[in-house]
């Protein structure tokens, strides 16, 4: 058992490595956003804040990122639930157990490149559609990558996320002894549907919520996939911040820092609000 002194030290190091990094990033972004660092000249100015708060780009990007994150997350969780409930213990047998882990090894860059090969205008789906006589050429195939609706980004995210949730839900089912609980419910007169909707699903969702929230935040800040297969406009927030931090006109670079500030503050506020709700729950 670690002593209380060691425990305090470890906790302090953890806080420094997590909260400290965020606070440092926020401080750097704040300094850059008012022109104190990062520009050609270093003089205090509010021009960058005025520019990003008055233009629709930041708000559109935030809303778009939230929509993509939710659209990527919800179907993934639903599909994972369906797979676990349908397959049950078979998921723990070869080769399904290995196949489930495989997509988790793919970095975002690789997943995005695979998405281009499969979903692109000259990709496999398009070629199948052409062979089947459905389209005359790539230009007639619907835009599934580099599209403003973010279809390719959502599909790629979902394929990357679903295996993770399958593994998580399968593990939760064992830890929460859901089979036993459902059997108990049925012995007390519950139907199979009632055991599913009143026992299994609520227990799983309660266990999943914190992880899903964290994964949602990670998807919100997704960079590689939307950069490689997303549209240029609207763009997800990390891509938009990156673009503003590398402007042709160095004088506008502070706008990127201001955007990063807004994003960090919003995310921190959401995290604080969610932690309070979770604590109450």
């Amino acid at each position: 058992m670690p002593s209380s002194k060691t425990e305090r030290l470890l906790l302090s190091l953890f806080a420094l490595a997590t909260g400290g990094v965020v606070l440092l990033a926020l401080a750097v972004a704040a300094a850059g956003s008012v022109g104190l660092i990062g520009g050609v000249d270093t003089a205090f100015t509010c021009a960058h804040w005025r520019a990003i708060l008055s233009a629709p780009t930041l708000w559109l990007s935030l809303a778009y990122s939230a929509a993509i994150a939710v659209l990527s997350l919800l179907p993934s969780v639903a599909l994972a639930l369906l797979i676990v409930l349908a397959a049950g213990a078979r998921l723990r047998r070869a080769p399904l157990d290995a196949l489930l882990v495989l997509p988790l090894a793919f970095p975002g860059v690789v997943a995005a490149l695979v998405a281009v090969q499969v979903l692109g205008g000259a990709g496999w789906l398009s070629r199948f559609a052409h062979a089947a006589g459905l389209v005359a050429g790539p230009e007639q195939f619907p835009a599934l990558v580099h599209d403003r609706l973010g279809i390719g980004v959502v599909i790629t995210h979902s394929l990357m996320v679903t295996p993770f949730f399958v593994l998580l839900i399968a593990r939760l089912s064992i830890l929460e002894r859901l089979d036993d609980l459902a059997a108990l419910g049925r012995s007390l007169g519950a139907t199979s549907a009632q055991a599913l909707w009143s026992i299994r699903v609520p227990v799983l969702l309660r266990g999943l919520s914190p992880v899903a929230a964290v994964y949602g935040a990670a998807l919100l800040a997704s960079f590689e996939v939307p950069l490689l297969i997303g549209a240029q406009h609207p763009a997800m927030i990390a891509v938009e911040i990156d673009r503003h931090l590398r402007p042709l006109d160095l004088a506008t670079r502070g706008q990127g820092y201001a955007m990063a500030c807004v994003y960090l503050l919003l995310l921190s506020t959401a995290w604080w609000w969610l932690s309070r709700r979770t604590a109450k729950f």
Partner: peptide, 23 residues
């Protein structure tokens, strides 16, 4: 234009990719 001129490749590498793929 490609994608009705509503979207453009981000850089020349993406443009090359579309050309090489025959799109």
């Amino acid at each position: 234009l490609w994608r009705q001129g509503r979207n453009f490749p981000r850089d020349v590498a993406q443009l090359h990719q579309l050309f090489a793929a025959g799109e």
